[in-house]
């Protein structure tokens, strides 16, 4: 039905595409650990050889009722609902940083359970709604 030339070009393209798709897949697979912008507390717990001198990022949720702010430092616990890490931080935090919200902390691990951050980023979720609706939902939940 199609001319031979067209068929030839199409099959050439198909081969080219599948090869590049496979190679990209392999590259991504190899890079998988490096692509992660932050590690979760579970990642750190299961990791055997941690470099304590290297800066890393730890992310998760700020555990509820653990945020303590005094004039010197901010302390809280990052959780991924399986494992937890205590974090200590001195400095200013973004507006969206709050208990029960996502957070990414940049800094160094002291040990597997304690992290000293020198930068805090807030990670918000994909839910957008007007404030009135949020209040309504809160009241319904009570």
């Amino acid at each position: 039905m199609l001319p031979k030339k067209v068929k030839k070009r199409a099959s050439l393209l198909a081969i080219f595409l599948s090869i590049s798709a496979i190679s990209i897949f392999l590259i991504l697979n190899a890079l998988n650990k490096n692509i992660l912008y932050f590690k979760s507390p579970s990642d750190i717990r299961s990791n055997q050889n941690i470099d304590f001198d290297k800066k890393i990022r730890v992310g998760g949720m700020v555990k509820k009722n653990t945020l303590k702010i005094n004039n010197q430092e901010i302390r809280f616990i990052i959780t991924d609902f399986k494992n937890e890490i205590r974090v200590s931080f001195q400095g200013t935090v973004p507006n969206l940083f709050a208990e029960g919200k996502g957070v990414v902390a940049e800094g160094k691990l002291q040990d597997k359970k304690f992290f000293i951050a020198d930068r805090i980023l807030a990670k918000h979720d994909e839910n957008y709604m007007p404030p009135e609706l949020k209040n309504l939902m809160r009241e319904n939940a009570k």
Binding site: N32, I35, G59, K123, H124, N127, Y128, M129, P130
Partner: peptide, 23 residues
């Protein structure tokens, strides 16, 4: 697929989107 700082998509091809209709 990966941990990112960027939030996941609010408007999904399948399923309900997580963005209120007024927005």
């Amino acid at each position: 697929w990966w941990n990112t700082l960027h939030q996941p998509a609010s408007i999904k091809i399948t399923g309900t989107s997580t963005i209120h209709s007024s927005m």
